[in-house]
């Protein structure tokens, strides 16, 4: 009994110390150090790391095409890039109210979003694709989606497309998840007939998922679907810097390197 109490106290102590250390670490990270790096500007970027291969978490590290891209841009433009994970739908409001400087998250440039934020030049042509269960013969493409159960991720143009289908045929059921992985799981378990999502993400899922019973059908559509980096409306300084960086890494071959790394 004595030993047990001692053990408990010891582990409690370790726990508290660990937390204290993490806490301190976090604090030094956040504290501004104007003396050291006056010329290195900080760039706080938001993403939603549930969208492989654009952004995901691997070994507690944020990685993916977008992550490499923004870090490369930061490097050529002299920014110290710090990336933060958050809900996809929270990204635009966070840019709007200045919680983050920019958002890169496989985010399509849409007229609705342009009302709230500014976008850099497009850095990726995505397009949508329909994914269905392997045994499904009914759905061959977008024309067959009416009246079916559709899943997508909240706030994406895939979700907006599902809404359009529903408007055209009220029998359509839309099931909007907070992250695309859940939508795929729902399709795997047969809870929906199709997932409408950005083509590169769905393709990557099919490539990497083991034992998947999903296939893609039809052509890539919504070709105007292009990704951009969102910044606060009117923040032309940052917008220009990011656009400039984008051009630079395209010219010096970094963009192609990153592209071939992920696709």
């Amino acid at each position: 009994m004595r030993n047990f109490v001692k053990l408990m106290l010891a582990s409690l102590l370790v726990f508290v110390l660990a937390f204290a250390l993490i806490g301190c670490g976090g604090q030094t990270d956040n504290s501004e150090q104007p003396d050291v790096a006056t010329d290195v500007k900080k760039l706080l970027v938001g993403t939603n790391a549930t969208f492989p291969p654009f952004e995901m978490q691997e070994d507690s590290e944020l990685t993916g095409f977008d992550m490499d891209l923004i870090r490369a841009i930061g490097e050529v433009q002299g920014y110290e890039v710090e990336i933060q994970h958050m809900d996809f739908k929270a990204l635009v409001p966070s840019v709007q109210n200045g919680k983050i400087d920019a958002a890169i998250a496989g985010m399509s440039i849409t007229p609705e979003r342009l009302e709230s934020v500014d976008f850099t030049e497009a850095y990726f042509d995505a397009g949508l694709i329909v994914a269905v269960h392997k045994d499904n013969q009914d759905i061959q493409g977008t024309d067959d989606l009416k009246g079916k159960k559709l899943a997508a991720q909240n706030g994406t143009i895939g979700a907006a497309y599902c809404d359009e289908v529903k408007k055209a045929d009220a029998a359509t059921e839309t099931r909007i998840f907070d992250d695309i992985g859940l939508a795929f799981m729902e399709l795997e378990k047969g809870g929906v007939d199709a997932v409408v999502n950005d083509h590169p993400v769905t393709a990557y899922y099919l490539k990497t998922a083991t034992d998947t019973s999903i296939k893609m059908v039809g052509d890539i559509f919504s070709a105007e679907d292009q990704y951009g980096i969102a910044v606060k409306k009117g923040n032309t300084e940052l917008l220009n810097a990011l656009n400039e960086g984008l051009i630079k890494i395209k010219e010096n071959g970094t963009y192609d390197e990153i592209y071939s790394k992920w696709f």
């Binding site: 739908k89 909240n154 909007i176």
Partner: peptide, 15 residues
Amino acid sequence: TVAELMHRGDLVFAN
């Protein structure tokens, strides 16, 4: 994706 109050708020907010 149960269409209860919070989910509906979520969907409207996202757009």
